[in-house]
């Protein structure tokens, strides 16, 4: 929907071809839009829409993948708008709270010193700021289990690198723009990295392959190299389950 002044009014429906329809709640990153996305997603899980195969919740929109042989996108779009009206007032659960031990600095924190320099504060201050915040998983995407986190203190907001690095390891903790992230599989990235967690967000051989889902909350706990090594061994042996602390 476009208003006469040219601004877009939300929520609105956009189409991605003939097998996906999205409802958008905003054009920017906001916690309230993300809550609307997750509330509507929860509504679809609880009361499925006929023909819907899967959903993809993102920062500000919910994509719904459907089988056109079972339902038409135009009808699904209307249903999403109808439900979004009630979703606005719907209560979203607080989300699970997890604590991730993090080894700040070291070989997986190529950007920690640079970040301190850019911000004109000490490395320890960068670490304290990053570790003191509580984060919220806004979405899982890009790669299996990759977590986009909101809640990064404003002073740490930093643009991505101009040239991405070719390989960043799983478990690396990054900063990209206004967000933080936990890397889930090794791969290229233009984010800036400050540390790593021994936990694995994605392990296809684990009983529960994915650790996190959108809406979860995260705290980081600073650990030293010795403890990180100890946790690495236990993770490798499959002995360690992450603690849900609330």
């Amino acid at each position: 929907m476009t208003r006469s002044d040219g601004a877009i009014s939300y929520p609105r429906i956009v189409r991605s071809g003939d097998q996906a329809v999205s409802i958008e709640f905003s054009d920017s990153v906001s916690e309230s839009a993300n809550r609307q996305v997750l509330t509507l997603d929860a509504s679809i899980s609880a009361h499925p829409i006929a023909g819907v195969l899967e959903t993809i919740p993102t920062y500000r929109s919910l994509a719904v993948v459907y089988d056109p042989r079972q339902a038409r996108g135009s009808a699904i779009g209307e249903e999403l708008i109808r439900r979004s009206v009630s979703a606005e007032s719907g209560e979203l659960p607080a989300g699970r709270l997890f604590e991730f031990p993090v080894l700040y600095g070291g070989e997986h924190a190529s950007d920690l010193d640079e970040l301190a320099k850019i911000k004109n504060i000490s490395v320890d201050e960068v670490i304290d700021l990053h570790a003191a915040a509580e984060y919220r998983v806004y979405m899982i995407g890009f790669a299996p289990g990759f977590a986009y986190l909101g809640g990064l203190p404003e002073i740490l907001h930093t643009p991505r690198l101009g040239i991405p690095r070719q390989r960043i390891e799983a478990g690396a903790i990054g900063i990209g723009g206004q967000q933080s992230s936990i890397n889930s599989v090794p791969g290229p990235s233009g984010w800036r990295f400050v540390g790593r967690t021994p936990y694995r967000l994605f392990d296809p051989n684990r009983h529960e392959p994915f650790l996190l889902k959108a809406g979860d909350r995260i705290r980081f706990l600073r650990i030293d190299a010795e403890e990180a090594g100890h946790l690495d061994d236990r993770v490798a042996r499959g002995e360690l389950d992450i603690r849900e602390i609330a």
Binding site: S16, T58, S61, A63, M139, F142
Partner: peptide
Amino acid sequence: DIVSDATVVGS
């Protein structure tokens, strides 16, 4: 640049 959202096969 947009705020990252869902892509599909065929995007």
